[in-house]
Design a protein around this nucleic acid. Structure first.
Lengths: 121, 121, 121, 121
DNA sequence: GTGGTCTAGACCACT
DNA sequence: GTGGTCTAGACCACA
């Protein structure tokens, strides 16, 4: 559970939580049946509201990244390698389609985008 | 002035206006000293509040895309080709850095990103 | 009549006219009984509205810098050197009091202001 | 939060707010991470519209004096002494350049300005 | 409760 | 008629 909150970011805190945890699950850094910390504990450590943590946990559960057992806590779903890959691909594809649309709206071709990416690093 | 508002989008209306107009200026579709429609007229045509149009126009003026003259109207700034290119590059670079950071957070390398872009089209 | 209009300035155009003409009168560059150009002529030359010029001329007359004779035109008032000096002093003093108040509001002493002025040039 | 609104002033209310608060921050009267009153509360106390307060707060945020967090409130930026000094210098320099230009337009030299300042107090 | 966005009016200064 | 400012509401997402 290595999470960093940026209070001044435009991105809502609950979504920062969601993004970082889902990312760690997808990358296999958080493995199946791993027990997430109780929301109150997490809230204290991250210095955010309990409600905020709850919202992030709910969204993680809704999208199948974790499951909760009343009275026992929240656990990372035990997903197969294939399932994780599919989730990752879906997330990335959806974002990439939006991004490309945006760049094209500014008059860039796919080649322009790729060239710019290459020149940036 | 070909603008489309999506009321169901997450993106605020004033920002949709800003994005589309700044994009048209950058692409040269709106040229220097072009007179934008009066904010009240634009508000009626776009079916949004005058305030919303005003907010978009303000941001456009703040970033140097347009200039306003009380009692006369709002006009597209007469920018050189170089200035337009610089504005475009700045906007694109800022977004691209965020995007790449996001993709890397999901474990993608720059090569992965480029390959995926190529395979998408 | 050497006047420059800045359309993008915050200062209203009629006031730019007023400031520049009154300044020229105070400095003696425009002498008594000099005939100002007709407002329509001035409007064309300066590329501003007739109404704008009229407003500036009216304000000049109201403050005693010029006088108008119906059907004949507007003329610079024939003021004595002493009267011009008094006008100048009054204008400068009024502005300076406001300015000093502003600087003091930001925590500057009179010494600070003077030092800053000296260091600026 | 000691603020006075002058409804009869030429200066817009939102700018009076901006000027007074930024001034207090620059002078160190409002320190870093100080929580500003909620915009609705401020609006009631100052007897102005919420929108007007919002506009002032927005400009303060844009210039780096404060930062806002949705659902939490608005806070004074935690700026170093150096950063505060730089902000102050920038604001003062910009105004002073305009002022000097005005006085020179009336035929005053820098010496004249300084002498007049000294004689005023 | 907090800030962010939006509406449908209004009045004013400027052109 | 133009932009600039302001009001008094409202709804939403976030904490």
């Amino acid at each position: 559970m290595n999470i960093k909150i940026n209070n001044t970011s435009d991105k809502p805190i609950y979504q920062q939580l969601f993004d970082q945890i889902s990312s760690q699950i997808i990358k296999g850094e958080l493995k199946g049946d791993f027990c997430l910390p109780p929301i109150r504990t997490a809230a204290v450590e991250l210095r955010v509201s309990v409600i905020t943590v709850k919202k992030a946990w709910e969204e993680l559960e809704r999208q199948g990244f974790i499951y909760s057992m009343v009275g026992r806590g929240c656990f990372v779903s035990d997903l197969s390698h294939t399932e994780l890959l599919n989730m990752r691909t879906k997330i990335i594809t959806e974002k990439m389609e939006k991004d490309v649309e945006y760049y094209k709206g500014l008059g860039m071709s796919l080649d322009d985008i790729i060239k710019m990416l290459e020149s940036m690093y």
